[in-house]
Amino acid sequence: MKQHTISTRISLNPLLILFFCMILAACSDKKDEQAAAESAAKVHKQKIQSSVDRLVQFPEKDLRANARKAVMEQRWVKPSGNSALEYYLALRQKLKTPDESVETAITDIVPYAVIGMDQAIAKFDDREALRLEGLIRLADPNAPALARVKTDLEKMKARQAEAEANAATDEEAQAAAEAKALADAAKAREEAAKKAREAATTGQPVVQAPVVQAPAPVVQAPPPEPVAQQPAAKAAVTPISTPQPPYPREALASGTKGEVVAEITINGAGDVTGVRIISASPRNVFDKTVQSTVRRWKFRGNGETTTIRRTFAFN
């Protein structure tokens, strides 16, 4: 009986050891998965942080002062992180309650962002077009301009994602090459040290092996930007004063909503010389307020007559 008990214990010990090993392996895998998930979340959080998110950290008085200074210097949407629109968007996020002066400023500046986005799309400047699209979306997620250029923006986002994927692949290949070069250099040094020790033991002269130097990292030049095969476009007019048309009292009282698309003609000096209503829904409700307001708009002219089209939403 005693011999049978000892035999049973001996046969169970390997099973217990295997069981404990499986538990330890499972715990280790779980920790690795958790660490990977935390690392991915941290990278994602850093990636989505925008210039507006960084500006929100400044005190309110500093944001207001910088916003006013940017307006005076006509830094409407540039440079990134130091423009009037970004300061006012940061103020909106920081205050968390509606502020009439902030909302009015954002409404007045958004057309500059729309013009800049259109110009960037025409120049195939994906990075700038997507940056301005993000600012416009923060200002008004339902801005008509976003729907108008939705297809172009989707193509730009696809190109941007492909470029980033290619850059990541190139960086991985470069890192692998550098790691291999460093490993080869370390191996060569180890072999040289081994030969030196053997020579010292046998009393033979030491022959210095050539040291393998790790190659300098190769800087990958960015791919050339696609060149648009089209005639050179004339300089765009720049808005100076473009207030938005007021909501008609009768329409506001009755809760009427609508949209007006207008074609605006601007002379070489930047004055509006004509406003033609392309479409209006409903008709004869918002047309007059759009025409009377837009005729007072002022642009910095380019010396030539320019025609632009704008959509005004009343909702």
Rank of each mutant, 00 (worst) to 15 (best):
P79N: 08
K150W: 09
V77P: 00
T238I: 05
E86P: 12
A200R: 12
F20A: 08
I10E: 06
D32C: 09
P222L: 09
K155M: 05
E162W: 07
G81M: 13
L16Q: 03
E171A: 13
K195D: 04
P226N: 14
R300A: 09
K187C: 01
I277Q: 00
A37S: 06
E164A: 07
T305R: 14
A179T: 00
Y112Q: 14
R159Q: 10
V207S: 13
A120E: 15
L132R: 14
I106A: 06
P224Y: 08
V206C: 09
S51C: 04
N267S: 07
D140E: 07
A67D: 04
C27V: 03
R127C: 07
P14E: 12
A216W: 04
K288Y: 02
A176N: 00
T8P: 05
R249N: 11
P210K: 11
G255D: 10
W76F: 15
S292P: 06
E86Q: 05
A221R: 14
S51H: 15
A113K: 01
P59R: 07
P223M: 13
L135Q: 10
S28L: 14
Q213S: 07
L24F: 04
L182I: 01
E133Q: 09
N284S: 10
G203W: 03
N267W: 10
A139R: 02
F58A: 13
I10Q: 01
Q119D: 03
P282K: 01
A216S: 15
V211R: 09
S80Y: 08
Q208D: 11
S7D: 05
R249F: 03
I136K: 13
R68Q: 12
A313E: 10
W76Q: 03
E128G: 07
Q220Y: 14
V285P: 01
E86C: 10
I48Y: 15
V211P: 03
Q204C: 08
A253R: 13
K123Y: 10
A200E: 04
L153E: 14
V71F: 04
P246V: 05
I240Q: 08
D62M: 14
D118T: 02
T169P: 00
A168P: 00
E178I: 08
V285A: 02
E171H: 09
V219T: 04
R75H: 11
L146N: 03
P246C: 01
T273D: 00
I266F: 06
A253E: 02
I23W: 08
K61C: 12
T97R: 03
E172W: 01
K123L: 15
A313L: 09
I308P: 00
P144W: 15
A221S: 06
D126E: 12
A165L: 03
V219Y: 13
V77N: 08
P243S: 05
E164T: 10
T5Q: 15
A35L: 12
A269E: 05
P222A: 13
L146I: 07
N302L: 07
F286D: 00
Q174P: 00
S279L: 15
K155E: 14
T107F: 05
R283V: 04
Q174H: 01
F124G: 15
N13R: 10
S292L: 06
A35T: 13
T289W: 01
R9I: 15
T256W: 14
T305W: 12
A176Q: 01
K30E: 03
S281K: 11
K195L: 11
P243E: 06
